[in-house]
């Protein structure tokens, strides 16, 4: 199934692109996708504990399943800041 991936901030720098199209096996989860991406971009592994993911603009956890045509965004924690 075809999906669209979006990367932001340091993840965009690692991947070298903001926007990728990918063909995934049916029934993939967000976690499966991250594991697949880590093979191509080993630097992503360091982000695994903190990485945030959104499917179609809603935050999801790594067990969320992916459907054909989904837009999956992958990004570091948002900028936060001291209070």
């Amino acid at each position: 199934m075809k999906v669209r991936l979006l990367f932001f901030a340091s993840l965009k720098d690692i991947v070298g692109s903001r926007d990728l199209r990918l063909d995934l096996p049916a029934n993939s989860t967000v976690g499966d996708l991250l594991t697949e991406l880590e093979k191509s971009y080993p630097q992503m592994k360091a982000y695994r504990p903190v990485i945030l993911t959104a499917v179609n603009e809603e935050y999801v956890d790594k067990s969320a399943s992916i459907s054909e045509g989904d837009e999956i965004a992958i990004f570091p924690p948002v900028s936060g800041g001291a209070r």
């Binding site: 932001f8 901030a9 945030l52 959104a54 935050y59 965004a73 990004f75 570091p76 948002v78 900028s79 936060g80 800041g81």
Partner: peptide, 8 residues
């Protein structure tokens, strides 16, 4: 600052 996907 926690949930809006914006980075600096």
């Amino acid at each position: 600052k926690k949930v809006v996907p914006i980075w600096k």
